[in-house]
Every structure is written in structure tokens, then in C-alpha cells.
Amino acid sequence: MELILDRVSHSYGNVEVLNDISLSVGSGEIVCIVGPSGCGKSTLLRILGGLEKPDSGAALIAGDPPADSLNPLTYVFQDFALLPWRTVEGNVSLVLEDHAIPKDRARAIIADVLARTKLSEFAGAWPRQLSGGMKQRVAIARALSVNPAVMLMDEPLSALDSQTRDLLMDDLVDLWGQVGFSACYITHNLAEAVRLGHRIVMLSRRPGRIREIVDIDIPLNERINHPAETTAIQRRLWEAMRDEARAADRELSDVA
């Protein structure tokens, strides 16, 4: 299944946030979207997942999602969005409960995704007991449990400190090695994009337009061994973005 954004433009009132954006996320592909703050990245993700309707253009799905996908387009949020009154297990179970899955099947799914995200021993813990990194692992486990066709990840690592972020990036790379999920991954952090993205789409500042698309063909699990190449790409992207970022920083914001 392929998720396509076709010539999407969108405004909030008089403020145009997205201008003529087209891109696609193919099967097993991680597309990173980078850009200065306020360039409409989050809006773009909301449109991709059907939480918002674009003024013009459309979000399209090509092909059918896998038959066993319970929620083809699944978000991972920056603030984790875990229910504090449910345990780790309960939070994963939440998204399965509406799908009439037999109890033992659901239990198996939960055990599987918790194992994949190295959370098995925390199944009974409350979210308040977990560190930020662990919370985001729970959120990722929850997303994996519905077997998504595309994961829509909205700055998933931005709320974490840099060490946790590095650890979690490694985990995501491992996970992709096992599951081969596809994702649209939004970040303002170029290092993340260069580490996790098969393709990097760079947006300009408001109104967001596609400025540049960079394909990186080094396999994800080998990038750590090619520091020179990745650093070069990261530097080139930063050069392109620096002035935009500076200008964006000085803008008054009144857009949600």
C-alpha cells in the first residue's frame, strides 16, 4: 500500500500553511519530513492521517492495506498520549478492544509488541512510573499492535533527552529490521532524519513548500558505520535550511 499526498494546499484563515505539496510513502519506506518550525509539518501529518481536510488537493491511498491491519494509518504522538489510568498492557489493549479480537489472540498480540519494544517486564506498570523513553516505547508498541500500513510519527523523539533519543533511534532501526514498517516521520532534528529516513523531504518555511527531496540509499542498519556520508548529508541539509530557520524563528506565530 502506498500513501500519497496529491497537490495539497491548506490555510488557516488568511494564513497559508501548506502550498502544493505532493509526496508518497511507499511500502516499507520511512519518509522523513523536515523543515523549520511553523512550516506546517504537523498539519501535513494530520491531513495524511485523515484528522484534517485539506483546502485543496487530497490524501490518497493506493492499493489495499494488508488484510490484518486493524488501523492502516496509525499515529505516534510527540507527547505519547498514553492513558495514565491504564497500565502499559492496558494502553496497548485499548486500541484492540474495539476490534472483536478473541481474548487470547489479543493477549498474544500485546505480548508480542511488548517484547519487540523491550517492555515485557513493565506490562503491569503505570505510565507515571515510566521514563519518557519508556513511555514512547509504549506508544510505539501500541501503534505496532494494530499492524499499521503506515505509521504517522509526529516528532516522536522531540520530548526526550538526547541520550534517550539515541537509544530509541537504535531501537527503531532494529524494529524496522524486524517488521519493515512504513512511516512518515516528522522531525525538526536533521540527525534523526538522516539516521532513520530512506527519503528526506525538506519543506520551506511558511507557507510550506517542498524545497528539496534527498534519497539516502545507505541501509538503515549500516548508517552508523558511515559517519562521513551521513554527516555530509546532514550538513548540506542544514546549509539549505539555516536561513529559513532563522527567519522562521523571528516570525510571530498565530497559527495553531
Binding site: N71, Y75, F77, A81, L83, L94, V95, D98, V146
Partner: peptide, 15 residues
């Protein structure tokens, strides 16, 4: 955000 999360996972209104 929690409500939006619920919607994004396709939870029913009642759920």
C-alpha cells in the same frame, strides 16, 4: 490529545 489519540486509532464514540 488523548481524545485525538482515541480517534486516530478508530475508537468508537462510545469507547
Amino acid at each position: 490529545n488523548l481524545i485525538r489519540m482515541g480517534q486516530s486509532f478508530g475508537l468508537s464514540w462510545l469507547s
